[in-house]
């Protein structure tokens, strides 16, 4: 019965397989991303773009394989990884103790920090210590919620989790601030017409890498991807991609 809808999977595949240059023999590297995290992974006129997209294409090229990008809501990505529908997630996944217990990570390819962002003109909040008694937005499933909960005054912060649009709700004043990584926060402020400003310095170092399932087959794949990242780092390609997107090298300390 579903076969008569064969056109639909075809359409979808057309939308999902946004990459894949030279034909390689083995399975493509299936990479999940939200497609809604500027400038790491986003869509412009139906084309998937971003730092993550460029890095993973370079990795696949280095490995002499194809890459297939699968976009889903952020809250669905780890479920896709768990259920074996993708090989890894390229969405600025920060290495945390909890995640390390469960997943195998490659080396970090982004070093960053958590950043408080407020509506422009907000003088009250000048850093993470001013979040006491405030409403703070974070993305659902991201590790910023955890970071906030680890603060000594966590009980006095009202944390709101969002599936998307935290920048918009902060600009509208529905929440007092949002927490995101410094790199994309500065990018948002620089390029987009929303009245937002960074508040203070980043408050926690973040190392972002690619997670893989903890199985033998996936460990081999992780090692391959890690080797490719290392090669890109040594050849200067990784730094080059970072310069193109951020005007600075975020791929090393």
């Amino acid at each position: 019965m579903l076969r008569s809808f064969g056109i639909i999977p075809l359409l979808l595949t057309g939308g999902l397989v946004l990459a894949g240059a030279a034909q390689a023999n083995d399975q493509p590297l299936k990479v999940g991303m939200s497609g809604s995290y500027f400038p790491f992974t986003y869509v412009e006129k139906d084309v998937l773009k971003g730092y993550e997209v460029d890095v993973l294409r370079a990795v696949a090229e280095q490995m002499d394989t194809n890459v297939e990008f699968v976009t889903a809501s952020f809250s669905g990505l780890f479920g896709m990884l768990e259920s074996g529908r993708i090989d890894t997630i390229a969405n600025q996944i920060t290495i945390t103790d909890e995640r390390e217990k469960k997943y195998l990570f490659t080396q970090p390819y982004v070093y960053d920090g958590a950043q408080v962002v407020v509506k422009r003109g907000n003088e009250e909040i000048t850093g993470v210590e001013d979040l006491v008694g405030k409403k703070v937005a974070v993305n659902l499933g991201s590790n910023y919620e955890q970071l906030l909960r680890e603060l000594p005054y966590a009980d006095e912060i009202t944390i709101r989790t969002y599936d998307s649009n935290i920048e918009q709700d902060t600009a509208l004043g529905r929440v007092d601030a949002f927490v995101m990584d410094r790199v994309s926060a500065s990018q948002v402020i620089k390029e987009k017409p929303l009245p937002l400003a960074l508040a203070g310095k980043p408050f926690s170092e973040l190392r972002n890498a690619l997670p893989f399932r903890d199985t033998q087959a996936d460990e081999a794949l992780r090692d391959e991807v890690d080797a490719a990242l290392q090669a890109l780092r040594e050849s200067g390609r990784l730094s080059e991609i970072s310069q193109q997107w951020f005007g600075t090298d975020i791929s090393s300390l």
Partner: peptide, 22 residues
Amino acid sequence: FTLGVTELMGATQKEASGSFMY
């Protein structure tokens, strides 16, 4: 879109995040 299917709403969310024209 939470299951990785880019349909009308998923496509809109991704475009909005690229342009910030929510």
